[in-house]
Amino acid sequence: MNNTAKRGWLWLAMITTTLIAVTVIAIPTFTIMPFKAQSATGVEWSYHLRRWSPLVTVLAALMFIALALKLWRGARWYGRAAMFVLFVPLAAVTWFARQNHFEWMFNPLPNAAYAAISETKFVADNEMVMTVALNDEVAAYPVRQMAYHHVVNDVVGGKPITATY
């Protein structure tokens, strides 16, 4: 194989690597979007892609770097610039694969704090609360807060529970 053809194949491999990594992230991100109907298959694919995307994106990034090193010498200035332009989305999806973007939209409450009723000025009498009573301990989760956080992990009466809304 002559050198030009070989370089062509390496470029194709680099572009394909980037496309695979971007697709692995794009499919679940667009499939499980709010205000959209989901199919069972769509959710299943999203699960598998989300599960493997941290590994797939890192392998893709390493592959990309290896290919770029091979191509760097002998590349013209615009070839080198193209490598950077291609690497930007790849780096972005590699980072995104390690993020839970639903928790950007709705901050979790890893250290939920509680108030006694006498100090509770932040809930009006006519506002709704979700309540649970276990082994003589009683906790209330105001619906307005739950409609934002959606999930609160707690221990009530010695029992670990998850309040969801």
Binding site: N107, Y114, A116, A140, V152
Partner: peptide, 12 residues
């Protein structure tokens, strides 16, 4: 449940 506890809002 006058003895109950209530989830505090996250100020952030």
């Amino acid at each position: 449940h006058p003895q109950g506890r209530v989830l505090r809002p996250d100020e952030k």
